[in-house]
Amino acid sequence: MLWEECVVTPKIAGSTPHDNLAAKQQAKPKVNKVSARDITASLRAGYADFLARPFMSGFFGLIYAVFGILIVWSLVWLGKIWMIIPAIVGFPLVTPFAAAGLYEMSRRLQKRESFGWSEIFAVIAKQRKREMGWMAFVTLFIFWVWMYQVRLWLAVTLQNASFSDLGGFLNAVLFTPQGWTFLAIGTCVGALLSAVLFSVTVVAMPMLLDRETDIVSAMLTSIRVVTENPVVMLTWAAIISVTMLLSMVPAFLGLIFTLPILGHTTWHLYQRVVPPAEA
């Protein structure tokens, strides 16, 4: 008697390595080419969002301003006068995370959804269980690196200088050769750290709020946005930096207006450079 043993291996659609690879490639967000006109249009849209909910938008700016004032006051109280200028200069590094509520406001305004304080704060609270918390860690870590390297180069270049107050510190930094060396090194290192942070967060923050994605994918998409639109993104980075620094001159109070507008604008620029997932 002849017996035949047949082994049948079922094929399940979409389960082959080729199909899985294709699915991953399809999931990779598309990045558009943008121009200066997209920045202008995004600024207009961001300003419109601010005018639509000025009190709520200004509230987030006020929190940020008060936080900045408390940092300066704490440094004065602790006698760490030399840290005031570096802290003010590095303060904008943590701006993207502070704007999470503004991104959600713009998202809802764009979809013409009604919302109040509870809805916005509920979304912010949910970010603790998502990847946004890790992004906050990245921004704060780079801010810590900035402050540490300032202290390091201050000790190396101005080791014999004495500054017990802000005036003495400014005199040592601005009117001595050692101070000029410190400024040159600090500017170069600060520019490098700012470029790194900007590259990995420029669209990563709103993307993490907008989509179910991981921090690595969001940061890689953000880097692609910068590398594929270097001139436009450099322009946007310069606008953010200059606006933020000027806003901090009047005791941080300018941030009440500029931070919300920049936050809303960032959302609209993200929408232009990274098309919706369903598109």
Rank of each mutant, 00 (worst) to 15 (best):
K33E: 13
A13E: 15
G14H: 06
W134M: 03
I84S: 04
A99K: 11
N160A: 10
I223M: 13
F141R: 07
R112I: 10
V72P: 03
L246T: 09
C188H: 10
M219K: 01
L192N: 06
S74M: 06
L2I: 14
I84W: 03
F91P: 00
L2A: 11
A277C: 01
T243I: 08
T213W: 00
M233I: 12
T258I: 07
F198I: 05
F55M: 12
T16C: 00
V202D: 07
I69G: 00
M233D: 07
S247G: 11
I120R: 07
T187P: 01
K80W: 13
Y103E: 07
P10T: 15
K30N: 13
N171T: 13
F60N: 07
V202H: 04
A238H: 04
K126P: 02
E119F: 09
E113V: 08
A41V: 15
D19A: 14
V189T: 13
L75G: 00
A98M: 09
E113Q: 15
G263W: 10
R151F: 14
E104F: 02
F175K: 11
I215D: 02
M147T: 11
N160S: 11
E4G: 04
A238I: 13
Y47P: 04
S42N: 10
Q127H: 02
G14Q: 08
T221N: 07
L43W: 10
V72S: 05
G133Y: 00
D214Q: 06
T227M: 06
R37A: 15
V31C: 03
A41C: 07
Q271L: 04
L174V: 11
L208K: 01
W117R: 09
T181H: 03
L259Y: 11
G58R: 02
L183Y: 00
F55A: 10
T95A: 10
P275S: 07
P96C: 05
Q149V: 12
L245G: 00
T201P: 00
S222H: 10
E5Q: 10
A27H: 08
T157I: 02
Y64P: 03
A279N: 12
A48P: 11
A218Y: 08
A13H: 01
W236G: 06
T9N: 08
E228H: 13
G116Y: 11
V249N: 06
R107Y: 05
N160D: 13
V173Y: 08
N160K: 03
F169C: 02
L234I: 12
C188E: 08
S162T: 15
S199F: 01
G116V: 09
G58W: 02
V232Y: 03
